[in-house]
Nucleic acid binder design. Structure first.
Lengths: 212, 212
DNA sequence: TCAAGCTCTGAATCGTGATTCACTTCTTGG
DNA sequence: CCAAGAAGTGAATCACGATTCAGAGCTTGA
């Protein structure tokens, strides 16, 4: 035997892998998932089409990783921003604002992560993304309830609803070319909406309705 | 010349068209968009594959119509249910409940309408669907604000957020095989969440935040 | 430097499902 | 009943992009 993989070749391998991932993210951020064909990714990374398959088992596998990373980054940013010592309302507001501001910068990427049609395998990754957000919000809510700032409620449902509310409110301004929408105004309204949704004590009407 | 289309043949044409649409809806309601290939639709309608193209310009054209109809039906049901003379809160609650109950029956169809990956041309139809819901909610909110039941707020944003909140809260229980989730409980929590979100006056925290 | 064995290449292949079209079957007015 | 056309058929074609693979080019330890 004569050839044996070594540290240097391994480093080169990883570097190529990173270049491929990076090219894929760029393409998604720029033109969405549809624009990111395997050969376009290969071109962007400066490798041959076939080489992509030396690093990833399939296109779906590649983009699952792409989505995993991009999602992780988003969720981490939100969690980090809202981790301060402030009270629960403030933390929730910060989480929403961070979510929304990051999405409105990088709209195309946000749209890909939140709503663009993708392969089932990649879709699975998206569900994990939404779940990660849901868990983050659920945790904030639970803290707030424990602290007596929020009333008792179905934390799982409320968290899911928050994710949906934020996502949908953003995808509107997100999918068209953004017209000249007032980003700050949308964000403020969204924060007000979300804080209210989890803050309010039962009203007469709701109580009546739930009893029925 | 000898042959000339007549009333009878026209009727037959329309009937075939309806059978194709109906088969397509059934397939979507049963297995989602992915299960609805053109030949499966043709089989279901009892015609040849090629005949589908005698009635629709393309698969996308067919399914745009399918989605248009299905969406229309859903939105109509919600609008009709919430059209009563009750006050705005009750009307909103009814709208949400109708939306949710119909989605939870026919989960597969609801998922297709709300979230399943589809052709861009069909996706456009979906956006119209969401917009129709948004408009319906926006109208309810505007009425409520005029009546002094809801505080002033950005109706467009709130309406979008409501649609997103409901959709996301449902797609959770919707996409897995529904386990043994407590539908009524989810619906109640959802109603409470939504009513609160649009009912609440600005809190100290929100006011402070918006001023900043 | 060399043989062994790895990696890279990108054109050819493959799979999938929409779409077409030459042909058959039906309808109609005369 | 007939010829002119229209509608219906479904096997063949096409489009498209993911995936493969035979050969070229590198790396390595001896």
């Amino acid at each position: 035997m004569a050839y044996r993989p070594t540290e240097r070749t391994e480093a080169r391998r990883l570097e190529a892998r990173e270049r491929i991932l990076s090219a894929a993210i760029d393409l998604v951020a720029q033109g969405g998932y549809r624009a990111a064909s395997v050969s376009a990714v290969a071109d962007g990374a400066g490798v041959a089409t076939g080489s992509v398959y030396r690093h990833f088992p399939s296109k779906a596998g590649l983009f699952a990783e792409v989505f995993r990373r991009a999602s992780q980054r988003e969720v981490n940013a939100v969690v980090a921003a809202s981790a301060g010592e402030d009270n629960a309302v403030e933390r929730l507001a910060t989480a929403i604002e961070t979510f929304a501001r990051r999405a409105l910068r990088g709209r195309r990427l946000a749209w890909a992560l939140l709503a663009e049609p993708v392969d089932p395998a990649v879709e699975a990754q998206r569900l994990r993304f939404r779940r990660a957000y849901r868990d983050a919000f659920a945790s904030l809510l639970a803290d707030g309830i424990a602290a007596g700032v929020f009333p008792e409620q179905r934390v799982e449902v409320a968290a899911a609803a928050l994710v949906g509310a934020i996502g949908e409110a953003l995808v509107g301004p997100l999918s068209p070319a953004g017209d000249d929408v007032d980003d700050d105004g949308v964000i403020d309204a969204l924060i007000a909406f979300c804080i209210s949704s989890v803050t309010h004590e039962e009203t007469e009407h709701v109580r009546h309705r739930l009893a029925a």
